[in-house]
């Protein structure tokens, strides 16, 4: 039975049909946001995640930065080993940020922190938090091994075994790092919080690209010459990919009728802070200096700050969408079901 066709629970027909954009030069249409029908005394229909946004957002940032820098530095030293020795040493420290700073943040956010080890009782494919626990464990083990063996190997030039062990562990941390820099998007998407659930694919693309941008930007800080230019180009490419995914996800929010969540302080922080100052601005700076090779650390620092702000603010906008029954009810209409036959079906 198609719920959208049932008179008793079908949403009231909106007064105006959804707007259509006829030409790319026209401004993006504003879709009606929010539920037009009854609510229960305006009370929330959902419960917002009891996460501390700064703490969990901070973890997501460090996880992305560490994971991506493991991946990028491993790629760099495989492709051009001699040019990347300094990069490899810097990556040793950056990859330790996730286990050393990120993991304690996660444990701090538990409401019963002394039972953190219960996360290791099970492995569940339906729970990105469980998947992430194992990714973080694998990443931490290989990052410590890679950094330790690399550091030791540097001091014993003849002990080739240490270097080989370090390379092996780095590849393992690079693979786990790819997962670490993006599983957090699946963690948010696999909830009933409307804003996180509305665009799983583009949210994950944003998270992945943002992680790669921070990985490359933090490796580039203090780097000179060709390696610096390569890293700048990777940061710029990642920022461009992130911007594209950001536009796609915002279009999706608008089509699901929940774009109103951005007309709040958290939403303005996401749009004005994270996207405008932390994404578009560094992208423009990279664009201006890419050909000559920039010296300024400013675009890299803006990228890092923008990514941190993005992770924190997206948590806040999600909470807004869970607490506002008009957004929750609008999102839980049959036309937003997977496979429903409404114009808002374009996947994103």
């Amino acid at each position: 039975m198609d719920l959208a066709d049932r008179a008793d629970i079908a949403p009231p027909t909106p007064e105006e049909p959804p707007p259509v954009r006829r030409h790319p030069s026209e401004p993006m249409p504003r879709w009606p946001s929010g539920w037009q029908g009854p609510t229960y005394y305006g009370r929330a229909q959902l419960k917002a995640a009891p996460f501390e946004n700064g703490v969990v957002g901070g973890y997501i940032f460090f996880a992305g930065l560490s994971g991506a820098s493991a991946l990028l530095s491993t790629i760099a030293s495989t492709a051009s080993p001699r040019a990347s020795a300094a990069l490899e040493r810097r990556a040793r420290w950056l990859t330790l940020l996730a286990p050393v700073l990120g993991a304690p943040l996660l444990i701090y956010d538990l409401h019963t922190p002394k039972r953190f080890y219960n996360m290791l009782r099970v492995a569940k494919g339906t729970s990105p938090m469980s998947i992430g626990t194992w990714i973080l464990s694998a990443f931490s083990a290989s990052a410590f091994l890679a950094s330790g063996a690399g550091w030791w190997g540097d001091r014993r030039p003849n002990r080739r075994g240490w270097r080989r062990l370090s390379t092996l562990a780095r590849w393992s941390s690079a693979l786990a790092g790819a997962g670490l820099s993006t599983y957090t998007a699946a963690l948010l998407s696999a909830t009933s919080t409307p804003l996180w659930a509305a665009a799983p694919r583009s949210l994950a693309a944003r998270f992945g690209a943002s992680s790669m941008a921070t990985g490359a930007a933090s490796l580039a800080l203090g780097q000179r010459g060709r390696t610096r230019r390569n890293l700048d180009a990777i940061t710029a490419a990642a920022l461009a990919a992130e911007l594209t995914a950001t536009l796609v996800s915002h279009h999706r929010y608008s089509r699901s009728g929940i774009a109103g969540a951005f007309q709040t302080p958290w939403g303005r922080l996401e749009e004005g802070g994270a996207t405008a100052l932390g994404l578009v601005a560094p992208l423009a700076m990279y664009g201006a200096t890419l050909a000559r090779g920039g010296r300024s650390p400013l675009p890299a620092l803006a990228t890092l700050a923008g990514s941190l702000l993005f992770r924190i603010s997206i948590m806040g906008v999600g909470d807004v969408s869970a607490r506002d029954p008009e957004l929750s009810f609008r999102f839980a209409q049959p036309d937003n079901l997977p496979g429903a036959h409404s114009p808002s079906r374009a996947s994103g």
Partner: peptide, 28 residues
């Protein structure tokens, strides 16, 4: 105060993971 058409969150794990990993792989 009940949702008309709730969904199963676990169905969004695979789309998010594949899209995120594909983005990272492309940039890599």
């Amino acid at each position: 105060n009940l949702p008309a058409a709730p969904t199963r969150p676990a169905n969004r794990v695979a789309p998010a993971l594949t899209s995120g990993l594909a983005t990272v792989a492309g940039l890599a």
